[in-house]
């Protein structure tokens, strides 16, 4: 099961890494700011967020913060696997977002 998940992760990465289109970024923005989807701004402040929370770190200059896209993907996919005490939901593992949606969020956050 785990290897399947890893294969899935690896399978999606290069495709999305190729080039983020405007549509990808816009899709990512929508996911990040929609309560029923990513709801990122409930906990993270980032430019353009409305009434953002402060439970997670502010997302600013994200490329410097998390230069490695694979690590960024892993953080969104299953941060509790990396850090058991985190409050960040395992968006990928718990099927809250699809791999495509996670990649869209990454594309969007890399513009911040």
């Amino acid at each position: 099961m785990k290897s399947l998940a890893i294969a899935l992760v690896l399978g999606f990465l290069p495709v999305a890494a190729l080039a983020a289109t405007k549509a990808d970024i816009e899709a990512g923005r929508k996911i990040a700011t929609t309560t029923s989807l990513g709801n990122c701004d409930a906990c993270h402040m980032f430019a353009g967020a409305d009434e953002a929370g402060n439970i997670g770190p502010e997302l600013k200059d994200v490329k410097t913060m998390i230069p490695d896209r694979k690590i960024f993907y892993a953080i969104i996919y299953d941060e509790p696997a990396r850090n058991p005490r985190t409050l960040m939901p395992p968006f990928g593992r718990n099927a809250i977002l699809t791999p495509k949606q996670i990649n869209d969020v990454i594309d969007f956050m890399y513009t911040k």
Partner: peptide, 10 residues
Amino acid sequence: VQAAGMHLRG
């Protein structure tokens, strides 16, 4: 407990 006193949105 962990996030007590912090902001979840507003």
